[in-house]
Computed example of a mutant assay.
Amino acid sequence: MAEHPVQPKHRALGRAALTNPDNRYDRYSGEAVDDGWPRDEELPVLRTTVTDERPRKVITRNTSPDLSFDRTINPYRGCEHGCIYCFARPSHAYLGLSPGLDFETQLIARPDAPEVLRAELSKKSYVPDTIAIGSNTDPYQPIERDRKIMREILKVLSAFNHPVAIITKGTLIERDIDILAPMAANGLLRVGISVTTLDNATSRAMEPRVPLPATRLRTIQRLSEAGIPVRAMVSPVIPALTDHELEAIVTACAKAGAVAASSIMLRLPQEVAGLFRDWVAETYPDRAARIMARVRELHGGKDYDPAFGTRMTGQGEWAALMKQRFQLITRKLGLDRSLPQLRTDLFAVPPKAGDQLQLF
């Protein structure tokens, strides 16, 4: 049984989460009860709503030893892609919203982010290093098509010759090849494309508004043909659901032009664990127990262990086997390499209107 009231399927059409758990910071919680009164009307279908946020700063710092970067930008909060496994869902609680259906349907856009970024990069104290975009929510989720916030951010980074690493499942990134290709040619860009499965039905079930796998493979090809280095990201690997596809996914990405590959095990922090348990019980009842048993094997008997060093790889014999399989296939295909460090020596604050140009 779900831990929170399940939304009617007609209402949550095209969404992965089945429920809307209470915000963990709220003092009070709500519970649906049958009051005996008949309901003749149907609840409306959940639509995506977007609220604008005016950020004071957009570069977020981190000190995680598991990450290769120390700063990120998020053009949006929440993600319409709606991946049920998304580890970013708990961040919606900081906004007073639920990590469940709210995360997929109540989005926050940051239209002033490009200008705020310009100001941050212009500070004399700023020291450049790679900015990661897409490490929390996807910058190329569907609303980017109209809002174009990510595109404007890229224009700023390009003007400053600032290095950037992009992670996405969104094929809309192809729209920005005109900006990305010159940055890549100057050693300022790399892209990670996440491919979780090659099966359309599995993809639609667990990441309902993400472009289908074959479409993402075409995006890898088009970016690669434009001279943009692409890392294939087989993330997350879901035990007893997608793990059998590991070699096939890496092989397909290599054929599409990927030059490197990485892989991360499924992780279920905070509310994501309950959301995932509900989803897998509803979607794959025949193997739900097996999936969750393997998940707990990966994390020391718990749904999730946040310990640095093992939270992304898992632990135990099955984790070791998956690591070995991944190493074998990437070595065979020549994807077992680190991409070159992005350049920081080209960084320069572009002159503003009215500035005196340097003579030398």
Score class of each variant (00 low, 15 high):
267 R>S: 13
182 P>R: 11
235 S>K: 00
269 P>F: 07
175 R>V: 11
208 P>S: 04
231 R>W: 04
277 R>I: 15
279 W>Y: 14
257 G>F: 12
229 P>S: 07
203 S>L: 06
177 I>V: 11
222 R>I: 05
242 T>R: 11
159 A>Q: 07
262 S>R: 04
233 M>S: 14
167 I>N: 03
176 D>H: 01
231 R>A: 09
163 P>G: 09
288 A>L: 07
174 E>I: 09
200 N>M: 12
208 P>A: 06
292 M>W: 15
281 A>Y: 10
157 L>F: 06
237 V>E: 01
192 G>N: 15
293 A>D: 13
190 R>Y: 10
230 V>Y: 04
249 I>P: 02
266 L>F: 03
222 R>L: 10
269 P>G: 07
271 E>R: 15
169 K>R: 05
210 V>P: 00
275 L>T: 10
199 D>E: 13
235 S>Y: 00
168 T>F: 07
168 T>L: 09
207 E>D: 13
208 P>M: 03
230 V>P: 01
235 S>F: 03
195 V>G: 06
167 I>T: 13
218 R>W: 01
212 L>A: 10
265 M>C: 11
270 Q>H: 15
202 T>K: 12
199 D>F: 04
174 E>L: 09
238 I>E: 03
284 Y>T: 08
294 R>E: 13
180 L>N: 04
175 R>S: 13
181 A>Q: 08
157 L>S: 04
234 V>P: 01
247 E>R: 14
252 A>C: 01
159 A>Y: 03
191 V>C: 07
256 A>M: 05
